[in-house]
């Protein structure tokens, strides 16, 4: 197997599987390409003809409404044909049926597979299987990666802060179960953010998270001090009453983002959230809807970033 399964022989992006392992210039290329795509929203006709005649298969082995929809919109704005498949598989037959499903779709002339899977690494497995003209985009695999979410977060940060090299960015909450956090940390360090912090209870931070180049805080008030960007993570309901956490109320008290905690960050700090958010659990409504929040622009930028990724891989 070659070293980097995401790049072709010319070092260009063939599949987008993870931000980890992508060179800086490819991240910058994706962010730069998303800028003119974001401009399309001002037009009468919001489509461009780049992927006319191409087929994009949204292959979702795990439920998702927002991510699937934004990929669908992105593909349609590139004039591709979109086929949505919500594939539910039993855990035992996962491996085998996954590759069979892909082989069948490949026989139907697919060009891009957008894959969401509960198991880490599933998109890699598919990427190894597909033909040279087919491209795989990871739309979230297990706890591993969610690269387009990470890229849209990076795009949002660059949009508001212009430059990465002087920033302090805090990622708050359930880092342990978050593929978004992992992708974002890799992206931020690759693009030269000097200080990336993770803030959360010990039980929700992965062991050895420091090795990713982040500073760890367990106290929100010290962690948020002088931050330029605050990224709140979703606390998944199924974690709330388990052994990891006493209760949602308890979590909110310590790690929920409220206006008074946010006041410790820089006055022009932006607040991000990958959605869907739990108001009153990880974020207070007054912050989610407040002047620092860029949560809805993130969704809009996400379409442009996904258009950029699809048009770059399909052209390589």
């Amino acid at each position: 197997m070659q070293n980097n399964p995401q790049l072709n022989a010319n070092g260009e992006l063939q599949h987008l599987l993870s931000i980890e392992g992508l060179p800086r210039q490819i991240l910058v290329q994706i962010l730069d390409t998303a800028v003119p795509f974001a401009g399309l929203t001002e037009r009468e006709v919001k489509k461009v003809p780049l992927l006319r005649g191409k087929s994009v298969f949204n292959l979702f082995f795990e439920a998702s409404t927002r991510t699937r929809t934004t990929f669908e919109i992105a593909a349609k704005r590139l004039s591709a044909d979109v086929i949505n498949l919500n594939v539910a598989v039993s855990s035992q037959s996962k491996g085998e049926s996954l590759l069979d499903t892909v082989a069948n779709l490949s026989a139907m002339q697919a060009d891009i597979f957008v894959v969401r899977h509960g198991s880490s690494g599933a998109p890699y497995l598919i990427a190894r299987q597909v033909k040279p003209h087919e491209h795989v985009i990871n739309a979230g695999d297990g706890r591993h990666a969610h690269p387009t979410q990470g890229l849209l977060d990076l795009y949002t940060i660059r949009h508001y802060k212009k430059d990465f090299t002087g920033l302090t960015v805090a990622i708050v909450g359930d880092v342990l179960h978050s593929r978004v956090a992992r992708s974002l940390i890799h992206g931020l360090t690759t693009l030269g953010v000097p200080e990336v912090r993770v803030i959360g209870p010990q039980t929700l931070l992965p062991a050895g998270v420091e090795s990713l180049g982040v500073r760890v805080f367990h106290d929100m008030r010290t962690g948020l001090k002088d931050c330029d960007v605050v990224v709140m993570l979703r606390l998944q309901h199924e974690r709330m009453n388990g052994a990891l956490l006493p209760s949602a109320q308890e979590f909110f008290k310590h790690y929920g983002l409220t206006a008074d905690k946010l006041a410790l960050a820089k006055p022009d700090a932006i607040v991000m959230h990958p959605g869907p958010m739990n108001r009153g659990v990880e974020i207070d409504s007054s912050v989610a809807d407040g002047p620092h929040s860029v949560i809805l622009p993130q969704v809009t930028f996400g379409i442009a970033v996904r258009m950029a990724v699809m048009s770059i891989v399909a052209g390589n």
Partner: peptide, 23 residues
Amino acid sequence: MDVAFYRDDYAQQGLKHDPKRTK
């Protein structure tokens, strides 16, 4: 205007780097 998204050589050349925003 940057015509990058309308070029007829996309299939051969791919997308050029750093396309500008049409305004």
